[in-house]
Structure formats: structure tokens, C-alpha cells
């Protein structure tokens, strides 16, 4: 267990109880009426869902950056999140907004479709360049179909539902979403963690990794399925929450020896912490309606991305 794992596990242990108390109404377990029901049925599942979603996105970001050997890589770029979003949008378009299971299931089907397309195009050769291009193609196709669904929404209510859902949030979620997402995300993180050693070898380039015995095709499959499960399940229960996968590995990297394998578990913990804290902040902000978590993280992520680009430009100069 490296230093980053200990640090972020410790911070998560501190942040979780605080997040349970935070909200438009601060909870005092001793005096707030029905505190135990609010905690058990509202705050705790929401906090658990934030942890599950953040952990999945953080681990996926670390693995993708390691695989593409690029600190600007984000799992959202590779078609799985847009594929899941397209599935959810289809459910909303067909009027299944109120159905507790259909919307996340449609999203999982969308994520699986994106995974299958990625695997069909790039899975045979196992090449990184082809995988990246295939991901961009899947992402733009899913994005175009989502835009089409919005423009052809059957009514204004459906259109509003779609747009709201696309700006991810953890509002009004229950244990049902936690039980749906948690096993898939945990399995996904386990697969990504298993790819760690191969990602370390990839640090020296694809030919060296192959010469060291890395099966690059198996690695690609581990990543497609691992990212598919973590990101697909996260989008299915929370909508699009961007930038977590991009930001988190950068927060973790300075606390590790920078080997990709050392980043995956701490990035899962740091992702969980970031989403948990961000969700607590959007709850306590004094706004008329709650700020959508996806919007809040994008507002935080875009300047961070710019900062990264400026640092890279300075490095190149």
C-alpha cells in the first residue's frame, strides 16, 4: 500500500461522516427530527453513490492515462460515457424517466454497445492509435445521436429531462442505484488494477512492453471492459460527470513514484473523495435550485485542464 492510498483513504474516512451531515439543512443526529431516516434513506445512499461513481471515474482516468501515456487523457474521450449517455437518453426519449430500472439499464446497454464497437474495431490488433481513433469515432457517433434525440424530442418535458440528466447529478438517488452500480464499478476497478503491471511496461513504449511479454491485446480488452464497467455504471446512475478521470490522477501522481500501477487504487480513492466533497458542496451552496454536480465539476475541471495545458506549454518551451 503506497503513501497516496493511505492519504486518500484517511481523507475519505474523514470526509464521509462530514458529507452525511452537510446539506441545505445541516444534520444534528441528536436534535434533528427523523435524523436516522434522513441519514439511512437519503444522505448515506447519496454519499455511497458519490464514492462509487468517483472511485470508478478516478480509476478509469488513471488507467487511461497510463495506457495512452498521456496526462491529458480522460475516459470520457473514448466513447463509453457518450455511449452510456445515449442509452439513457433513449430511455428518457421513450418516456421511461420514471422507471427505476429501465433508465440505468438502457445506459448500461449503451455503454456495452460502445465497448463492443471499440472491441470490434480495435480489439483484434491491440494497437493504441487505432483504439484512440475508434474511441473518438464512437464518442462522436454517440454524441451526434444524442443531439439528434434532443432535437427530435417528442415533447418539451422529455427534452428538459434529457438535458437535465446529461448534466449529471446524485440528487434523489437511493440504495437501488448503489446496489446497481457498486458491483459493476468494483469489478471494473479490479480489472483495471490487474492491468497495472502491463501499464508500467508500456511506460517504455509499446514495442518494449511487447518484448517484455505483455499481451497488448489482452491489455486492451482489460481496459475496454474495465473502463466500460466503471464509466458505464457511473454514467448509468449519475449521468455525465466529466473531468474527474482527468483531474484525479494529477492529484495522486505527486504522492506516488509515478508508475501507472501505483496510481490506480489511490486514484479510485481520490476520485471518491473529489465527487463526495463536490456533491457536499453543491448541496450547501445557497442557490435557489441545487447546482448540478456535472456542471460543478466541469466548472472546476475546465480551468484545471487549462492549467495543465499551460504547464505543458511551459515544459515544451
Amino acid at each position: 500500500m503506497n503513501r497516496a492510498t493511505v492519504v486518500f483513504a484517511g481523507l475519505l474516512l474523514v470526509a464521509t461522516p462530514l458529507s452525511l451531515l452537510a446539506g441545505r439543512v445541516w444534520l444534528d443526529p441528536a436534535s434533528t427530527p427523523n435524523a436516522s431516516i434522513i441519514l439511512a434513506e437519503l444522505r448515506l445512499p447519496r454519499a455511497m453513490l458519490a464514492i462509487v461513481v468517483g472511485a470508478g471515474l478516478g480509476a478509469a482516468g488513471a488507467a487511461m492515462q497510463g495506457y495512452l501515456r498521456n496526462p491529458l487523457a480522460d475516459p470520457g474521450l473514448f466513447g463509453i460515457a457518450p455511449g452510456a449517455a445515449l442509452g439513457a437518453v433513449a430511455a428518457l426519449w421513450m418516456g421511461y424517466a420514471a422507471s427505476p430500472w429501465l433508465l440505468p439499464l438502457f445506459a448500461l446497454v449503451g455503454a456495452s454497445g460502445a465497448m463492443a464497437l471499440l472491441a470490434a474495431i480495435a480489439g483484434r490488433t491491440g494497437g493504441i492509435a487505432l483504439f484512440t481513433l475508434a474511441g473518438l469515432m464512437v464518442a462522436s457517433l454517440a454524441g451526434a445521436l444524442t443531439a439528434l434525440a434532443i432535437s427530435m424530442a417528442p415533447n418539451a418535458f422529455a427534452m428538459s429531462e434529457i438535458v437535465m440528466w446529461l448534466n449529471g447529478a446524485l440528487t434523489d438517488r437511493s440504495w437501488r442505484e448503489v446496489w446497481l452500480a457498486a458491483p459493476l464499478v468494483m469489478l471494473g476497478i479490479a480489472l483495471l488494477w490487474r492491468s497495472g503491471k502491463s501499464l508500467d511496461a508500456l511506460t517504455l513504449g509499446e514495442p518494449v512492453a511487447r518484448s517484455l511479454g505483455v499481451d497488448t491485446r489482452l491489455l486492451l480488452w482489460l481496459l475496454i471492459v474495465g473502463v466500460g464497467l466503471t464509466v458505464g455504471a457511473s454514467v448509468a446512475v449519475a449521468g455525465i460527470i466529466g473531468f474527474v478521470g482527468l483531474i484525479v490522477p494529477h492529484l495522486v501522481r505527486p504522492l506516488t513514484d509515478r508508475r501507472p500501477s501505483q496510481l490506480i487504487l489511490p486514484s479510485a480513492l481520490a476520485g471518491a473523495l473529489l465527487v463526495l466533497v463536490a456533491d457536499s458542496v453543491v448541496r450547501v451552496l445557497p442557490l435557489v435550485t441545487e447546482l448540478r454536480l456535472g456542471i460543478a465539476l466541469s466548472l472546476l475541471g475546465a480551468p484545471f485542464f487549462l492549467l495543465l495545458l499551460l504547464r505543458m506549454r511551459k515544459g515544451l518551451a
Partner: peptide, 18 residues
């Protein structure tokens, strides 16, 4: 090519991977 700013020893250790 060395993609990440890893310690030298960890690079040499990769030789033991097989």
C-alpha cells in the same frame, strides 16, 4: 521513450518482468 517521470530503479526493474 520514457513516458512518465519514474525512478531509474523502477525502469531497470521492468527487465525482471518476464
Amino acid at each position: 521513450e520514457i513516458a512518465w517521470d519514474v525512478p531509474v530503479r523502477s525502469i531497470v526493474e521492468l527487465g525482471r518482468m518476464p
